[in-house]
Structure formats: structure tokens, C-alpha cells
């Protein structure tokens, strides 16, 4: 057997004194380099008896592997230590504020409008935009609001001249679309509408609506309920419950108002829903046969439904906004919140 203990001891003594990567490299060259100790030892093989040559070789290789492993372990340790010194010197206070370029924001009414419209687009509705100034045929007559109806009074409607008004709903565009196209018609119309209300915490003379219309063969009130129920679940979450209540509009019959279960208390009763568990969301109904006749659609062949909702109301309820005037004051402290 061969005794390499001196060499091994020499190696470990030297390794003990190594405290940086440079010294370690010197050590590596001393032992594993071209004229290193291991190499020199290998040269000894020629002096070994033939029958022992194999054994000698294999023992050197074992020694070589062992020492090489030590070197690479030491290397990793020294490397980590040096890296750690760098890390320590580059320590930062992570609690300092982040740097960023502030984004702007859409107006909250635009956000709500987009959300609503996107749901109806997914349900196959096509977006059409109407006018702000309309003739009374499209704003009233076509919608079965006769000449003596109070909605036509100057107290409620802004007039430009005796035949033109600021639209009181976005429905005039529904009449225009029905005049131009044959069913099936499936449209959604967002828009600005006007009513002659003095400004206070719950009224503005201008506000925003989204209205929808579907006219086709065999459209029923149950289809209306199913469509709006799905809409409410998409908008407020899948646990939302809806409720139809009878109501009256000149342009639909039967008509309804749809309530949704209060999204604050989930229906158990709170301040927002005035303890009823429900919040009034929108008005809707089956398109009045007279409205269909007005645009030359045969009510015996086709039927349809229509619905409409006010964006400010929905936004106020969703976000708990208590004053409608905030939407039009453009105070950044308000705009930034949504």
C-alpha cells in the first residue's frame, strides 16, 4: 500500500490558510497544475513494480478526486462569502416608497358604462349611439308618448324649438334603428339624456343611460327576465337575486321594474336598501304594440323587449356615492378614487 498522508496533510495545512479565491487558485495550481504535486506523484508510477502499478494509479486518482472536491467546496464557500460582502454593502431600505409614473383614470361613469356594455356585447347586443338633440317624433310620438302626456311639458323637457328637444331617454335611437332595419334587432344604446330638473344632491339636468332593445319572432317577457337576470349576475356576482315588479311606461306593456338583491347586505336589509333587501336597478318591459306599429313592424308577427337604466344611480349605489353633483364637479379627489 502507498502512503500519501504527507501529501494530504500538506494539502489540508495549506487549505487552512486560504482565505480568498486568489490563494485558493494558487493552492489549486500547486497541487493540480502542470507541475503540481499530483502530477509529480503520477510521474512516480514508472518506479513502481508492475503488479502494483494499477493499485498505485487508482489510489492517486482517489486522492485527486478527494482533494479536488475539497477545492471546489472551498471555492463555493469563499465565493458565497465574497458575494455576501457585496450584498451587505448594497443593503437597501425596502420600506422606502416605490417609484412609479402615475396612471390616469377613466371617469367612474365611463367605467360603469364599459362594464355594462361589455356584458351585453357578450350577450349578442350591438352598440348604437344616438343623438343628444332629437325631433319630437322620435323622442315622443314614436314612443307612444302622446301630445298631451306630461313628459312633453316644458317643466320636464328642454326644447330647442317646438319640434326639437334634448333627448329625455336614449330610446329615440331605438325608433331610428327600427325604422331602418327589419328584425331581428338586438341593440344597446348608451348615451347622455336631459331632464329639466334643478340641480341638487339627487338630480342633475343631464345624466347617462344605457338602454337595450330586442325585437324578433317569439320574444317573451320570460326572455326579458332571463336576459336581465343574467346581466345582473354578471354585473354584481352570481349570487345576485333579481325581482320583477309591475310598473308603467308608455312604450312598454307589460312593464316592470327590476330590483336586485342589495349588494351591501346581500338581502338581509341595511341602510343602502332601506331595509328592503332589494335595490331598484332598471325599468323594462315588452315593446308596446303601438311602438312597433309606428315603425311598421307587425306586432302580430314580431314581439320585443326593451330596458333602460341610469348610470349615475348604479354608480352611486355600487360605490356609496351620496351626491350626484360629484360626477360633474371633476374634483380630482373624487376622480382618483375609482
Amino acid at each position: 500500500m502507498f502512503d500519501f498522508n504527507d501529501l494530504r496533510k500538506k494539502f489540508f495545512d495549506l487549505l487552512d490558510g486560504v482565505d480568498n479565491l486568489k490563494k485558493l487558485e494558487e493552492l489549486r495550481i500547486k497541487f493540480f497544475g502542470k507541475n503540481g504535486e499530483i502530477k509529480n506523484l503520477m510521474c512516480e508510477i514508472k518506479n513502481i513494480a508492475t503488479e502494483n502499478k494499477k493499485e498505485f494509479g487508482s489510489q492517486i486518482n482517489n486522492l485527486k478526486s478527494e482533494l479536488e472536491l475539497k477545492v471546489s467546496e472551498a471555492k463555493k464557500k469563499l465565493h458565497d462569502a465574497e458575494q455576501n460582502i457585496r450584498f451587505e454593502s448594497e443593503k437597501i431600505d425596502i420600506s422606502l416608497p416605490g417609484k412609479y409614473k402615475k396612471l390616469g383614470k377613466l371617469h367612474v361613469l365611463s367605467m360603469v358604462e364599459n362594464e355594462i356594455i361589455n356584458i351585453f356585447i357578450q350577450m349578442g347586443f350591438e352598440v348604437v349611439n344616438g343623438f343628444n338633440i332629437e325631433d319630437i317624433e322620435h323622442n315622443f310620438t314614436g314612443l307612444n308618448i302622446d301630445e298631451k302626456h306630461p313628459a312633453r311639458d316644458e317643466q320636464d323637457t328642454f326644447y330647442i324649438d317646438k319640434n326639437h328637444v334634448l333627448v329625455t331617454a336614449t330610446s329615440p335611437i331605438q325608433i331610428r334603428v327600427m325604422e331602418k332595419r327589419k328584425p331581428p334587432i338586438k341593440i344597446i344604446s348608451p348615451g347622455t339624456v336631459y331632464r329639466s330638473d334643478e340641480i341638487d344632491a339627487t338630480h342633475t339636468p343631464m345624466f347617462n343611460q344605457v338602454e337595450g332593445l330586442l325585437v324578433d319572432k317569439n320574444i317573451s317577457m320570460s326572455d326579458l327576465r332571463g336576459t336581465l337576470d343574467l346581466f345582473a349576475k354578471k354585473l354584481f356576482g352570481s349570487e345576485t337575486k333579481t325581482r320583477f315588479r309591475p310598473h308603467y311606461f308608455p312604450f312598454t306593456e307589460p312593464s316592470a321594474e327590476m330590483d336586485v338583491s342589495c349588494f351591501v347586505c346581500k338581502g338581509s336589509g341595511c341602510k343602502v336598501c332601506k331595509n328592503t333587501g332589494f335595490i331598484e336597478l332598471l325599468g323594462c318591459g315588452m315593446v308596446h304594440p303601438t311602438v312597433l306599429k309606428n315603425v311598421n313592424i307587425d306586432p302580430d308577427e314580431f314581439s320585443g323587449f326593451a330596458f333602460g337604466m341610469g348610470l349615475e344611480r348604479i354608480a352611486m349605489q355600487c360605490f356609496g356615492i351620496n351626491d350626484i353633483r360629484l360626477f360633474y364637479e371633476n374634483d380630482l379627489r373624487f376622480l382618483e378614487q375609482f
Binding site: I117, I121, G124, V127, L214, D216, T227, F244, P246
Partner: peptide
Amino acid sequence: GYEKLNLSLPKNNNVGGNN
């Protein structure tokens, strides 16, 4: 009873979209 209305969906396959 309005509450007895069904929750059906219109059998019509329009493709929706924005303008």
C-alpha cells in the same frame, strides 16, 4: 305573479359588438 316569469333566454343568435 311577476315572480312566476321564467328565466329563459331569447333563441336568437345575433353577434354583438361595438361600433
